[in-house]
């Protein structure tokens, strides 16, 4: 029988490193999935975009679990562990975004479409995925956060509302706006889901 998150956190507070290890293994992938979409893609000068983004996500993921470890004595099991964890994830990504902005390294991910660009029918799947990822990154933070948590984190709307501290109705409205904006943006870039290969 697998231990619940609450039980693992209780043991972790008592200094059981094996319990913390289990928590990390259980939540590492979901946290990374959210971080990849929340942190957005940004390029390091002179570096590889992909490698840089990967490294950043790994660093952020590590930062999330360090904060979990540091704050384990303040953890209360009032809500689901995931709510507490994703709140930390949001804080870590927001801090990272602020740091990037302070360093002036946050670049505009929106690439204008030019006539010379590859037409969508000929574009490879990877290129289309890259465009979609960029469009998600280009969404404003208050729209991107609920969308990513709902879509990639697969959190119900009510939990997204608890994590973000925003009313439920506002969360739904923001997800709706985000999806519509995303569709419009990708359409502008010449990407239509009906013409894409499945």
């Amino acid at each position: 029988m697998t231990d619940s998150d609450h039980e693992l956190m209780r043991r972790c507070r008592q200094g059981d490193s094996a319990a913390f290890d289990m928590l990390v293994r259980r939540w590492e992938a979901p946290v990374n999935r959210i971080l990849v979409r929340l942190a957005g893609s940004h390029v390091e000068p002179g570096g590889s975009n992909l490698v840089s983004a990967r490294t950043d996500v790994d660093d952020l993921s590590q930062e999330v679990f360090v904060r979990v470890l540091s704050a384990r004595h303040r953890y209360r099991n009032t809500y689901a562990f995931s709510t507490w964890l994703y709140r930390i994830v949001l804080n870590v990504t927001r801090d990272a975004a602020r740091r990037r902005q302070a360093r002036g390294k946050l670049l505009n991910n929106h690439r204008p479409v030019t006539a010379a660009e590859t037409p969508p029918e000929a574009a490879s799947r990877q290129e289309v995925d890259q465009q979609i990822a960029e469009a998600v990154s280009a969404l404003p933070g208050d729209l991107r956060e609920p969308l990513v948590l709902r879509h990639f984190g697969e959190l119900p709307f009510a939990e997204v509302a608890r994590v973000t501290g925003v009313p439920l109705g506002t969360v739904k409205s923001r997800v709706r706006t985000a999806l519509l904006k995303l569709r419009a943006e990708l359409k502008n870039r010449g990407i239509d889901e009906r013409e894409l290969e499945p």
Partner: peptide, 21 residues
């Protein structure tokens, strides 16, 4: 439109890295 946006997001691969922490 909403469904289209949803489908486009679904295209993105699960970028799960190997557990490495």
């Amino acid at each position: 439109n909403l469904h289209a946006g949803h489908s486009l997001l679904d295209r993105l691969p699960d970028d799960d890295p190997a557990p490495g922490i």
